[in-house]
Every structure is written in C-alpha cells, then in structure tokens.
Design a protein around this nucleic acid. Structure first.
Lengths: 363, 363
DNA sequence: ATGAAAGCGCTAACAC
DNA sequence: GTGTTAGCGCTTTCAT
C-alpha cells in the first residue's frame, strides 16, 4: 500500500531554460532573448532555440520570472460579495481588458466581511499582485497595514472611498434624482425607501439624491418610509413584510429599492401578499441587472453600464502600470429605464380626507 | 512636465528578509524559521525577530517563496462564462474552502470561447498554479499542450469530461427523469425541450435522461419539439419565439429548458405572447438559481447544490495536494423543486379529435 | 549576435 | 538553537 504523504504535491521536474540552452547549443541568455526579444537574435539561432523549446516542452517558470522582473502580471480584484448578480458583468468587463493586456485576475471575495481583508492586504504587500481594483466601499487594511501603502496602483470602481483614490462609478445621487423625477412626475406623494448597507458610499449617495430630489419637489423627507437593507434579495423580502404590515391606506404608493435584487425580492413578496404592482404600488430598482427584464412586472430601474465600468477600471489600472500615472476619476451618468413596475398612483379615498390629489388613472 | 515612462510601475523597494535579519541581529535563516516554524526558535530570538518584522514592515516576497518552494498556493478555476448566474454560488463554495486552506483563487473566464484556453494551459505548465478546477466541459489545450499533462491535480465540477478525471457533479440524467416523472404524472402528453450547447456533457446527460424517461413512459421521443440553446437567457427567448410561431393546438403542453436562465427567458417571452403559464404550458428549468423563486410564476426546477459542489471540488483538490492522492468522482442526486410553473395540461379539443385524454383541471 | 556572471528574495540541507 | 551555504529559474548588464 502506498503511504499517503503529507508533503506538497510533487510536480515532475519540468524543462528549464538550461535544458533548452544545452539542447540548442547556446547560452541561457540567448534562449531568454530568443523568446523575449527575438530581434536581438540571429535567424538561425532563433530557429534552433525554438526547436529546442518545442522538443523539450519548455514553459518559462513564472515564479522565477516574477522574482527577477519584480512584477507578477496579476491584478487583485476585491469584490464585496461574489454572489451578487450585479458584479458578474462588471467582472466580465475587467476580464476583457486584463486578459487582452496579458494580466491575470485574482479574485478576492470579501463575502461582506471586513475580517477577510487583511489576507489580501498582505498579498499586495508581498508583491503577489501588480495592482488592485476595489469594488468594496472601503480601503482594505489589517495587521497594521493599509492597502494604499502597498506601493501598487489602486482604482475603485462602482463605488468611491472618499479619499484621493481614483474611482470609476455612476453618479448615485443623480440616479436617485432621475427616480424622483419619474415618480413625482407620475403623481406619487408617498414614498418608501429600501436602503443599502449602513455606511456604504453608494447608499449614502443614493439616499442623498433621493432626499434632495424629494425636498426640491416640496416633499417632507421625514415622512419617507425607510427600511434598512443590504442589497440582497432577502433584504428586499424583509422590507416587503414591513410594507405589508402597514394598513393599505398607510402604505406608500411608490417604493425605491436601491438595488435590483432588493427590488425584485420586495416586488415578488408584496405581490404574494395581494398587492398589485404597479396598480397599488410602483417599484423602482437600481443597477439594471439582466433579470430585471424578466420578472413580472418588468422592473423600472437605473441602468448602470456595468461591463463598461469594469473595462474602464481595468484600463485605468493598466495605464497606471505602464505610464506610472495616477488613475483618473470618472463619474458616469446612468439613465432610468422605465418598465412596467411603475405607474401613476391609485386614486383612493384617504382616511384624512385629502381630496386635492389630481385624479389620474393608470394606463 | 514629467515624462511618462513606458516602463513598468516601479514599486518602492520593500524590506527583505535581510533587513529584518540585520535589525534583529540574526541570520536570514533564523528569520525564516521564526516566521514559518516558530517552535524551532528560542523565545527571545523570536521576540527580537518579530519586533524587527514589525519595525521594518516586512512581508515575505511571494515570488521568491514560490520559486524556492516550487508551489504557488494558487488554484486556477476555469469557468465557461462568468456572467452565468449558475456559477456565482459555486464560486463562493470554492472560495470558502480555498481561502480556509490558504490558497488564492485565479479565475479563468473562458467566455465560451475555446481560443481562450491556451493561455491558461500555459499558466499551469509555467507553475503559476498548483491545481486546476474545471467547470468547462472539455479538457483545456493549446500550443500542443494539454492541461492534463501539466503535472498538477485537476478536478472537474458541475460537469464531466469523459476521460479519467475526477468529477463532482449532479446526475443530469436522473434529474431529467425526475422532470419526466413530474410532467407525465401531471398528465402531459406533448413535450418541448430547450437544449444546452451542442456537445456539452451536461446537455448530453439531460437529453438522454429526458428521452429515456419519456420512452419508458411510452412516448415517442421523435415527437419532442426540440429547440437548440446554450444555457443563456437569449436562447430561452429564441426558443419561445419558435414556440409562439406554432399554432396553439400544435404547441407542446410542457417545456423542459435545461437551465433556469433559458427557462426564465422562455417563460417571460411566451407570457408576453399571450400564453398562460402554467395553464396553457408548464415549464421546468434546471439548476435552481436564486432568481427562479422570484419570477412569475415561480419556476419548477432541478435544484443543484451549487455551493456544496464548489466546496467539495475545492476540498478534493486540497486533499490531492496534501496527500498526493487522486481526486475521487462523486455523483450527486439533485431533487426537483415543484413550484408554480407546472400544472396539469389544459383540457382542449384536439384538431385530430383525440378525446381519450383524462379530464383534469389545474388548481 | 552571443556568452559569462550576478543576482531577484527566499528556504532547506547541513554544520556547529 | 542558530549560522552558513547553496541554489530555485530566470533576466540582464557587461563584455566580447
């Protein structure tokens, strides 16, 4: 019986640059040149080297190259939660650009837990990655080290972290104001809000824009029904229970959930509770994920250019890597996509006898 | 004006093991020991070393360690399409285990294109990763190299690739038979099928199970309405157009789309086309993604234990890495979750006057 | 155009 | 316990 060893998996010794050099009858330096800078090598030599490479099945060892060249050709991408549907398309955009430039992508899934940060901060300090793309709303830190001190370019996308770091993101506040314009334009007078995580910068901006817009339209923001959330589907479901617990007359006629996932959870749950959407309540989301078009009714939402954000973020980093330049911030405007989940509010007799509301009928 | 350099981003020289050694008044070997095998070092020495580490802000260089130790502590995870909602939760499971064991995770997004494979095969041969987890249905290859020859443990999850590689996956064929049992049990007699990508092993298994089940129930599989797909939402939409193009009497009363994404695209589109679900047509998906519970009607589907599959795959690999053992294959049974998208077929007068169908009413 | 040689920063024998 | 030493595999001056 073969005894199991607790040792590391032993890889069969692969061909090294020495093997190739010997076989081609040249020095290791020449092999290196033939591969990296073919112009500096004569045709015949290059031919012999390439033949030897093929014969030996040689692949340059990355660790050795990285050690020598002091770079890893890897970018660390930190995402708050890998299961959040919003990020998939962003990741794709990042991947597009990074692969095109020869970089690999290492994923750091924080799973919404700050205690996962230190490990990745160490990686950056250890030279394991050449740059960092942040999608979490804070600067990672741990063990007395801060990511910004690691000496690698950093850019944040989808979110800003306040400090001088470059960020590529949508204007959250402006997005919320589009939502307000739409809802107020439809005639809504009572509002609900399902929030993002406390302290999250996107949440701050979206809430701010929502309040600013409503105030400008003459509403009392103190009367907004506020339900705390965290961008997840269950958070939307929770908020819906709170909504359903209100007497029908007390319910807001328009609810703004600041992520599509929450909006979808909210919508499905209130519909199961017997509420009609958009007849009884209008619902607006934020993000523009693919599924927003496939729920019933289809979801009105702010469409973030997710893939583009990913690409721009990656490109920014690559530029910083090549030119030693500081990444630039970019603020994008995201449009409101009006679908079937929003309509004018229902005409209803109010307990407090407000009869001045304009008579509008859906459809 | 500062001239932009085409050189690589120059990192400020970080503290090395030598700096720490000098400061602590010990040799580099002792520093290495104090960090990696503290027991082999006296308390006082260890204290001085740790103090020096802290003072210098030293972080061991990963490239150097990898070169010396001949391992990278990285696992390559190859996914067919990073935007497919199915994989998010699987990735999370993988991440859970890998992080717990100190491994990093490098994502290879193939974007459903075989031409992206060679790059990652090279990575494996270059020693950049210690193991590979395959979620694509084929063995990656390119430039005359095949992933299986890279000398690193490989496991496939969610799919099998036929050859001897270990795989952790759901029994596709059994899943399809659950679907058939359910639909036939409800009284359906005409069937539609929206397929996965041609040649995909999951597709093969699911189609096989579907046909086997129907044949066993006495149906002619030649009469199945077959619409080719690729697991994507648009593929489901396409199939729906084909469905709608049929005269109502010619439409199957039950449609099995072998991914939830296709089922959701199909369902939404036929509903917009005026078809009632499940009254006119029952729809079944496969995968059990989160959104399947939030579409209308909620989707009956095969529930894959996605996170568990991810965890098991990662654990298998870690075990192979530690014990030099061959990864083991595991076939899981995935249950059918019955929701609102399936019901008995409608009672309808058939053009060909078949009146022998049992009279059943939905609800 | 090519070779010799010096490391990149670390770990693991091997001495003491 | 701790230091010495020899590389891991590669790139890159500096010669020639």
């Amino acid at each position: 019986v073969k005894k199991a060893r607790s040792a590391v998996h032993a890889r069969p010794r692969a061909a090294t640059i020495h093997d190739v050099a010997k076989r081609a009858g040249v020095s290791t330096a020449t092999v290196s040149r033939a591969l990296a800078t073919p112009d500096l090598v004569s045709d015949s030599t290059r031919g012999r080297v390439l033949a030897a490479v093929k014969a030996t099945g040689y692949t340059p060892n990355v660790a050795a190259r990285n050690l020598r060249a002091r770079r890893s050709m890897m970018v660390l991408v930190m995402v708050p939660s890998i299961t959040n549907a919003f990020f998939a398309e962003v990741l794709r955009g990042i991947d597009d650009e990074l692969v095109a430039s020869g970089y690999g992508i290492m994923i750091a899934n924080l799973d919404n837990k700050a205690e996962r940060e230190p490990r990745y901060v160490e990686l950056a300090f250890a030279g394991q990655v050449d740059a960092v793309l942040l999608m979490s709303g804070r600067i990672p830190q741990g063990n007395g080290k801060v990511m910004t001190e690691a000496g690698v370019p950093i850019a944040t996308i989808c979110v800003s972290v306040g400090t001088g770091l470059a960020s590529i993101m949508v204007d959250d506040s402006a997005g919320s104001r589009h939502v307000v314009d739409h809802l107020v334009g439809l005639g809504h007078k009572s509002f609900g809000y399902v929030s993002g995580p406390q302290g999250n910068q996107n949440e701050v901006g979206r809430w701010q824009g929502f309040c600013d817009g409503l105030e400008a339209a003459g509403f009392d923001t103190g009367k907004i029904h506020y339900w705390p959330g965290d961008f997840s589907i269950p958070a939307g479901v929770e908020a819906a229970y709170a909504f359903l617990a209100l007497s029908p007359a007390a319910r807001p006629t328009a609810v703004y959930a600041v992520s599509d996932t929450m909006a979808i959870g909210f919508m499905k749950t209130v519909i199961e509770g017997g509420v009609r959407v958009p007849d009884d309540v209008s619902i607006v989301g934020f993000d523009g994920i693919e599924f927003a078009e496939f729920v019933t009714p289809t979801l009105t939402t702010i469409q973030q250019p997710r893939r583009q954000i990913g690409r721009m973020g990656a490109r920014t980093l690559i530029k910083a890597l090549n030119e030693q330049s500081k990444p630039q911030s970019i603020l994008l405007d995201a449009p409101l996509i009006v679908r079937d989940s929003t309509a004018p509010p229902p005409v209803r007799e109010n307990a407090r006898g407000r009869s001045r509301s304009p008579v509008r009928v859906a459809g």
